[in-house]
């Protein structure tokens, strides 16, 4: 069954024809060629696919493209203001070496931003670790990811993002 979908991705109106079974992540990757959002599992557990839909952090591998009809979607590609001006969370990941192979990174960064906002820019280490339950990383041992998120929270606050 072929269905038309239209949504806003990173501020740009996009549309396409999908099957009912097309997942949002497939729509992003295969239809729009936005391959920054990754797929790391088939049981909705790894978080490599996390994006923001209408202000909520979601796993784009567990939502149909048609369910995002009319939504505002933000992906890893939509965070940096310009190639030279990264989002404070991206900057903190770089500063703190919170990524190695980079595969989990898009989902990590998206989850991290959501976490900081939900906690009103105030986080402690235990909270960060607990909030990362849905994001697996096999490279970093999480140590530097936690550090980066703790560093980004005040930076996001002062940058007003």
């Amino acid at each position: 069954m072929s269905i038309s979908v239209a949504m806003t991705v990173n501020g740009k109106a996009v549309s396409g024809k999908v099957e009912a079974r097309t997942l949002l992540v497939q729509f992003l990757r295969e239809h729009l060629g936005m391959t920054g959002t990754h797929v790391g599992c088939d049981t909705s557990q790894c978080g490599a696919c996390v994006v923001d839909v209408d202000g909520k952090s979601v796993k784009s591998c567990t939502i149909l493209a048609v369910q995002a009809e009319g939504s505002k979607v933000i992906t890893i590609e939509g965070l940096a203001e310009s190639p030279d001006k990264l989002h404070p969370m991206q900057e903190a990941f770089r500063e703190n070496h919170a990524l190695q192979c980079g595969f989990c990174t898009p989902g990590m960064v998206m989850s991290a931003i959501d976490m900081v906002k939900r906690h009103n820019y105030q986080l402690d280490e235990a909270t960060v670790r607990r909030e990362l339950e849905g994001n697996l990383c096999r490279c970093t041992g999480y140590h530097n990811i936690v550090k980066a998120i703790l560093a980004a929270a005040p930076a996001m606050k002062s940058a007003g993002v």
Partner: peptide, 21 residues
């Protein structure tokens, strides 16, 4: 030294095998 490779990974512009068009 901060990593050269980070920028592409952090902005979703890395190129993994499955990303190839």
């Amino acid at each position: 030294v901060l990593r050269t490779e980070d920028k592409r990974f952090l902005t979703g512009t890395g190129r993994y095998v499955d990303d190839l068009p």
